[in-house]
Nucleic acid binder design. Sequence first.
DNA 1: AAATTACATCAACGAATATTGATTAGTCAA
DNA 2: TTGACTAATCAATATTCGTTGATGTAATTT
Lengths: 108, 108
Amino acid sequence: MPATAHKKLAHSAKWFHALADETRLQIIDCLTDGEQCVCDLTEKLAAAQSRLSFHLKTLKDAGLVKDRRDGRWIYYSLNGEALEQLSELVADLKGQSRKGPSLSPCCK
Amino acid sequence: MPATAHKKLAHSAKWFHALADETRLQIIDCLTDGEQCVCDLTEKLAAAQSRLSFHLKTLKDAGLVKDRRDGRWIYYSLNGEALEQLSELVADLKGQSRKGPSLSPCCK
DNA sequence: AAATTACATCAACGAATATTGATTAGTCAA
DNA sequence: TTGACTAATCAATATTCGTTGATGTAATTT
């Protein structure tokens, strides 16, 4: 089993897992308007701070969002590169783009 | 809170959840080669039958795959329409396609 | 009808996740 | 330094998820 294929597989699953939550999808949607600090999001989403902090960490660990500290604020924003790669991945899943290597070693 | 937006949100999360598993991603990758029965997949993925049946149900419930019975075999295949919609959804997440309604009612 | 094949479902267990409230860690201004 | 403010982390709890092995079901063959 090719280690590279397995890594891509694991990474893909991680991305999708990060997106598999309504709160996190709302966060991402908010971030399409531009970078926001946590306090912005707590207002807009009417969610507890610790909860959003948790979900932001999940998104950040997955590489989907970036953060930037400015004084006492930490601004979160979308990671455009990762979302672009995600877009290509979904195209692969459709089987329409057969350029990249297969995710699964058994279905070459 | 618009019920439609919330439904779209929940549906999106369901899609991503279905994709947030390595076994299920492998299944989808296999299915890009065309429809397969469960026994095909147990061979190719070297996984227990009950395990694949569980994951196939998850994918089917999410609407990402379809099944078709032919005698004692049940053939699974990708649902191209759903994958197309998923593709558009990811474009929305990138914020590049601002045609569709926002996922989150608070970030209009 | 009985046996076989292909697949679904169930029960049970451990592992991972999400939520809440409280605490801790930085940052800044007075 | 004190206090106010932003955000991360911790502890405790409840829920969800994935796997396995056993059982159930439907279609086919003998």
